[in-house]
């Protein structure tokens, strides 16, 4: 096909979008709604995984020493941690003495009568360890448990297993959402193909005339495809705008609640960093939906 013919067909398709305002509007709204749902689900998934990652990074291994651990036993642990830090496995660790632990407990209880019988001597020294890679936790935990100074009964705590379980559940949840989205996509392809079918039907006489004058199928088909692609693209841009506004509002709203609930580790991500990716996904999906929709609807009218 020659370039001037392509230009002509693209122009024709663009004019169709404008001439069939009502149909175009209906199709564009279908795209907007589909992509909006897609976007919200995507953003939800991104937020969940980013929060889980953040929680993993914040996760600490807690190691309590025996109440009667000696200085030597403590230094053994310290030098082990230092060597792991030098090896780049531990990002940081923090030590709490018996006194600090006693103070912490005292402060958190707020009522001295509960502390009765609990003295500084009953408190244990502890370490709080952050890992560079949360996945190396098992190894570190096994090695730590070999030290004689470390409390063998519940002396080592780490929440990763629980997080992994949560992540597993969320993964299943993700798959379900993907399936729902796939169905949604198919539905919107049919909705759009139906709307465009109406415009094709309105123009079937025109198509017939074009065929009698000797137009190739591609010559008839392309303006409709261009129309579908344009509808998809316009829908994508609109939907992107709506999504970004709704998301930003939700972000402020939910983050406010999280702060009030003192759950500041959990937070809704900024829109900016994912904006481009979302825009690309919207454009591609919008044009695919629109293009396939119009292809489906024009196909059967070509056999004249």
């Amino acid at each position: 096909m020659k370039i001037r013919t392509m230009k002509l067909l693209i122009k024709e398709g663009a004019q169709n979008v404008i001439k069939n305002k009502l149909m175009s509007f209906a199709s564009i709204m279908t795209v907007v709604a589909t992509l909006f749902f897609l976007g919200i689900v995507l953003l939800l998934a991104v937020n969940i995984s980013s929060n889980i990652e953040a929680m993993k990074r914040d996760l600490e291994i807690t190691v309590f020493l025996n109440v009667n651990a000696t200085n030597y036993q403590r230094e053994e642990v310290v030098s082990f941690l230092e060597s792991k830090k030098d090896a780049g496995i531990i990002s940081e660790y923090r030590y709490e003495s018996k006194e600090q632990m006693y103070q912490n407990i005292k402060e958190s209880l707020n009522d001295d009568s509960l502390l009765e019988g609990f003295t500084v001597d009953n408190a244990a020294e502890s370490f709080y360890i952050k890992l560079v890679d949360p996945n190396s936790s098992d190894e570190i935990i096994t090695e730590l448990s070999r030290f004689s100074g470390v409390n063998k009964d519940n002396g080592i705590g780490y929440g990763k297993d629980e997080l992994d379980k949560l992540e597993g559940i969320l993964k299943v949840f993700n798959y379900i959402i993907m399936a729902i989205l796939a169905v949604l996509m198919i539905i919107s392809v049919f909705l759009i193909s139906n709307t465009i079918r109406l415009t094709v039907f309105a123009r079937r006489r025109q198509i017939e005339i074009m065929k009698y004058v000797g137009a190739l199928d591609s010559f008839i088909r392309w303006p409709f495809i261009v129309e579908g692609l344009l509808i998809g693209l316009i829908g994508a841009v609109l939907s992107f705008f709506i999504t970004s506004q709704v998301y930003k509002w939700l972000q402020g709203f939910i983050n406010g609640i999280l702060v009030n609930l003192k759950m500041a580790t959990l937070r809704i991500m900024e829109f900016g960093p994912v904006a481009f990716r979302i825009f690309m996904i919207y454009s591609i999906f919008g044009m695919v939906i629109g293009g396939i929709g119009s292809l489906l609807s024009v196909r059967k009218h070509l056999n004249v």
Binding site: R205, E208, I209, K211, Y212, V213, G214, A215, L216, D217
Partner: peptide
């Protein structure tokens, strides 16, 4: 299409776009 291009066709009901 190529056959039809070799023909000029005129209809009773005109068939203009």
């Amino acid at each position: 299409p190529y056959l039809r291009r070799s023909l000029g066709v005129v209809f009773q009901d005109f068939r203009l776009l």
